[in-house]
């Protein structure tokens, strides 16, 4: 019990340590940004500090939080639907090859159509509503989850299945203790990518469909030629994504992937 808590604490420590190196990367980006600012001037590219100040000014206003929340809710809603639909259909496709043969061309088509085209269609179908944003997010993100899960199922180790059968496991037990457990390893990376996609597409759909949220604010900044505000809103969108990803997706994933970390030699742990 105590040991388990200790090892979890240790993992949290290495997680925070990884946060430091991430911060170093961000600092590098800020330095390049500052250089760009000094080369092109404040009108084209405001300095990072100015942008942060603009962001702080925006967030000190209560309304801005509502705007950001609106985008977050839309993105997370679309993401949740994508995760569920993608995971269920991915499982079906992985376990039943006939389904896969039907689904593969569909996925190719879905992934091949640019999100912008979906936004136009969704606007025609749903008008300027939440529905437009959520549907666009689902269409863009669900195939990613689907592919991850289906690949997970198809790369499962049949030897383990036979082993479980030799020890008397029924089909449901094999699905739960082997199939789903193996799929989880493929599911979480796919979910992380889908989540990022959900935020990006949500902002884009908001901007084009003119339905408020961060995208709506970006449209306004553009109209006012207010580059600092535009960059500040982008920063806020990225920050929201990072909070959700590092607050939810990564901790859950690292719980599931302790064995992978164990397999890595010392010194190359993430």
């Amino acid at each position: 019990m105590f040991e388990a808590a200790l090892s979890r604490l240790g993992r949290m420590g290495s997680f925070l340590w990884a946060g430091w190196s991430g911060l170093a990367g961000l600092a590098l980006l800020a330095a390049l940004w500052q250089a760009g600012h000094e080369a092109y001037g404040a009108f084209i590219l405001p300095s990072p500090l100015e942008t942060l100040a603009a962001g702080a000014a925006i967030l000190s206003d209560g309304r801005a939080w509502e705007v950001a929340m609106l985008t977050c809710i839309r993105a997370v809603e679309g993401f949740a639907v994508s995760a569920l639909a993608g995971a269920v259909s991915g499982l079906a496709a992985g376990y039943f090859p006939a389904t896969m043969r039907l689904a593969r061309p569909l996925v190719t088509v879905l992934l091949g159509v640019p999100p912008i085209a979906w936004i136009v269609l969704a606007m025609i179908w749903f008008g300027s509503t939440d529905g437009t944003v959520v549907v666009t997010v689902v269409v863009a993100a669900a195939p990613l989850v689907f592919v991850g899960v289906a690949e997970g199922v198809m790369t499962r180790d049949r030897g383990l299945d036979d082993m479980a059968r030799a020890f008397g496991a029924g089909p449901v037990q094999r699905l739960i203790t082997l199939g789903l457990r193996h799929v989880a390893a493929h599911l979480f990376p796919a979910l992380a990518v889908a989540l990022g996609m959900a935020f990006k597409v949500a902002v884009m759909a908001e901007l084009l469909a003119n339905v408020g949220g961060i995208g709506g604010e970006l449209a306004r900044s553009r109209a006012n030629l207010d580059v600092a505000a535009a960059l500040a809103w982008v920063t806020i969108a990225v920050a929201a994504l990072i909070v959700v990803e590092y607050g939810v997706v990564h901790p859950v994933r690292s719980e599931f992937e302790r064995w992978r970390a164990a397999a890595q030699p010392w010194g190359v742990k993430r």
């Binding site: 383990l160 036979d162 082993m163 030799a166 082997l178 390893a185 992937e257 302790r258």
Partner: peptide, 11 residues
């Protein structure tokens, strides 16, 4: 049963 490969759950 014991198989030629250990067939252990990697996780």
């Amino acid at each position: 049963m014991v198989f030629q490969e250990p067939r252990l759950l990697p996780w």
